[in-house]
Structure formats: structure tokens, C-alpha cells
Design a protein around this nucleic acid. Structure first.
Lengths: 217, 217
DNA sequence: GGTCAAGCGGACTCGCTGATCCGCTTTCGA
DNA sequence: TCGAAAGCGGATCAGCGAGTCCGCTTGACC
């Protein structure tokens, strides 16, 4: 997606691009997506105009970082999928995913509400689903994971495990391990109790987000 | 807390006050706390100055609504506490709490990150904890709830159950019932597996929020 | 009905932040 | 070494949203 620069960036420009991405990721994670572009430029040690030259808008910058994180998550899922034990694969995948989200807590927390409204990002997000799907299926076939949950359920729970810890740099960073463990206990077949309502489908979510989009944009 | 008006408000002023509160609650719920005061005034059918005359700042307005919601939650908890079955009391309490949060999803989601930084609100929030505490304790004594979870854990999970459903007016509004059910399954003693890290204490959270406050304010 | 303080609302200020402009600097190929 | 194009950053613009001002209206009390 986006432009592929025929002529590669000049060396200093490429270096600045990286500095900006790092600074922005850190700033978003620490202070949320509301940090000003000026602050990001300051952290990166460049002028504000330089930021806008590399990323035509703040949105574009946020999206670039978001895509990076999605790639990392997918990589983690693909690695976890290679583990022999189906349940361990699931747990590993979810733990890594939660860890990534916890690291950039401010970023994810502040963006997830509004970020999916960009169609490109929605497509990216779908890639995560596809990466985790087989892990879920395998765990269910092995009888290690209850049958009545969907991939979307599991992803939601993981997100929730991170979200239920208040975001503060001064709080123990591993709090999510506890909530995730509680949720995993609820995902085992032995714990299963009939669920009250049917799951959301991806199509439902997609449609709803698209509508919300046009309403709030 | 807040002012007690010696002279009661003139009838029209009182009416406007109510209109503003309702309009603001709805606007926050639908669009998040980022809606402008002008939009709230528009929804209430009053001029923007009128909003500021009743609530000296946007913060004050948000706090007023927040306190309302906390009162409702505590009321629900107190009602649930009267139920005979300890587990049912817990479930009822959490469901009602989740329902309230789901109704004003945008509001809670957008505020929980930053709202607790006001000491008054932190104190208010503490009242919820105190209301739910005995319900938790009773369920644990009855052997219906695993022993190794704290009230803070349970509140966190409830919040998370709501948070893991994307906020959209076009999405089925009862999605949280499913995630909450999954979490409840993980809270039963039979499902219990040793938890990896110790719980957060209220003091830890309080301290962390206070620090985050001064950093981000 | 008359008086007047309380209340009203629209126009305004003002600061903040995303985004642009422009004159100077750096890289890089020849 | 040198010229041109790419890059740079401080100054600046523009729009938005919180909060204020002021001349007009309305409800309350006699």
C-alpha cells in the first residue's frame, strides 16, 4: 500500500524517517495518540516539517505504526503455531499478543476505538484473524479449548485482558498476565457453561464499524 | 460535594440544567468525551453560555455525569446483595454493572483512562469497590467463587467484558453478555488454575494513577 | 401590571495543534 | 570540486474548541 519511492530516500532522510517512527511509537505508547506532532518531532530531534514530509498526515503516521504492530503480532502467531501442544500454542500466542498490546498500551487503547474505521486498517486487522484462526481450530480439535468460542471471542478476550489494567507507567507491567490467566481458565472445556448470546461475526463487526465511521467522521 | 444553591435555581434554569445533563450524557455515550460543548448545547437546545453557567467547565460536566453513573452502579450492587444465592448475587451485580457501562460505552471507554486522575473521582470510584466487596466475600465464603481473586480483579474483568466489544451503535448491544459469561466461567472455583502474578492492590492503583496524573496533566 | 435580578444566547477571545511555506543546508553523482 | 535536487526546520497559517462578554428576555415576587 501507499507509495513505493522509485528513488530511495536520501540517507539522512531515511535516518530521520526511522527516528520519527521510533519517537512516535514511544510517544503514543506513553502519552496516547493525543500527543502533538510537535512533541513527536521534538523527541525525534527533527523539525516538525520533517515529520509531515515523511508522513503526509498524523493519520498516516499512526497507521504506519499500527501496521508494524500487526506484523509483529502475526509473526508471533505464526511462531506459536509451530509449537507441538495445541493448548500451549494458543496460550503462547495470546500471551505474546497481550504483551505487545501492553507495551504500547496507550497507543492501542486510544486507537482501537477509532482506528478500525479506516478500511485499510480493517483489512490489516483481518490478517491477524487469519493468523490466529488455525491455532484456535487446532486447540478445539484437540479438545483443549471449548468448542463454543470463536476466534473473534478469543481475540476480544485478549484485548480485554490488557484493557482491564489501568494504563500507567508506574504500575507493574505484568498485570495483564493475571487477567489473561483468569480468562484462559474460562476458555477450557471443563469450565464451559452455555453461553447466553451468539457470537459476533466478523461481517457484523465490519459492517458496524463501517457505519460508525461515516457517522462519526 | 459541589455547591448547594442557597437560592434554588429559577424554574427555567433548573429545566435547562436537566436538559444539559441528559444531552451531555447522550452525546458522550454516542460520540465519546471529545464532543464539543457546542454540540452538547445544540442537543440540549440551549446556548453554549448556558452550559458553562451551570457547569463551570467541561470537566465539571463530565464529573457530574460520572457521579450519576457511580450512584447507579452502587444502587445495583446494593440490590444484588439482597439476593439469597451468593453466586447469583455476584452475577446479577456484575451483569447490571456491565449493562450500565455498555449503555454509556463511549463515555466510559473514553473517560476511564483519564478520569480517575481527579482525586474526587477516585474517591467516588472507591465507593463502588466498597459496595461490591461484601458480595465477593460472600461468594467466596460460599465456595461459589474462586478464592484467589480480589474485588479489583472482578471489577477489572467486568470492565473488560464491555471493553472487548467494539463500540458501535449498530452492533448488537448485548455482546458483552457473551464475554462476561466466559469470564464468569473462569471465576468458578472448579476452573481455577494457579495465577501467575499477585493481584494489584487498590493502593498500588491509586498511587500509580496519581503519578500518571501529574505526568500527563 | 411593574420591577428587577436571574437567566439567556450569540458573538467573541484565545490558545492549541495539525499542516504549510520558504530560505538555507546537505547529500550525491559526475 | 561543484551544481542541482532533495531535504531541512523555524515561522507561520488555519480551524477548532473551551471559556467569556454583553445586550436582550423571562420568570418571580409585590
Amino acid at each position: 500500500m501507499t507509495d513505493v519511492w522509485q528513488r530511495p530516500l536520501r540517507s539522512d532522510a531515511e535516518r530521520n524517517r526511522r527516528l520519527i517512527l521510533e519517537a512516535a511509537a514511544q510517544a503514543f505508547a506513553e502519552e496516547g495518540v493525543d500527543v502533538g506532532m510537535a512533541e513527536i518531532a521534538r523527541r525525534a530531534g527533527v523539525g516538525n516539517a520533517t515529520v509531515f514530509r515523511r508522513f503526509p498526515s498524523k493519520d498516516a503516521l499512526v497507521q504506519a505504526i499500527f501496521e508494524d504492530r500487526i506484523d509483529e503480532t502475526i509473526l508471533a502467531a505464526e511462531h506459536a503455531a509451530t509449537l507441538a501442544d495445541p493448548w500451549e500454542a494458543l496460550v503462547t500466542c495470546l500471551e505474546k499478543s497481550a504483551q505487545l498490546q501492553a507495551r504500547d498500551r496507550g497507543f492501542f487503547q486510544a486507537t482501537e476505538q477509532q482506528l478500525l474505521k479506516h478500511p485499510e486498517l480493517l483489512a490489516q486487522h483481518r490478517r491477524i484473524l487469519d493468523a490466529i484462526d488455525p491455532i484456535i481450530a487446532r486447540a478445539q480439535e484437540a479438545g483443549a479449548l471449548r468448542d463454543d468460542v470463536t476466534t473473534l471471542d478469543v481475540i476480544g478476550l485478549t484485548k480485554a485482558a490488557v484493557a482491564c489494567i489501568p494504563p500507567s507507567p508506574d504500575l507493574r507491567a505484568d498485570g495483564w498476565r493475571r487477567s489473561l490467566a483468569l480468562m484462559l481458565d474460562g476458555l477450557r472445556p471443563e469450565a464451559a457453561t452455555p453461553l447466553p448470546v451468539p457470537p459476533l461475526t466478523y461481517e457484523e463487526v465490519e459492517r458496524a464499524l463501517a457505519t460508525t465511521d461515516s457517522a462519526s467522521a
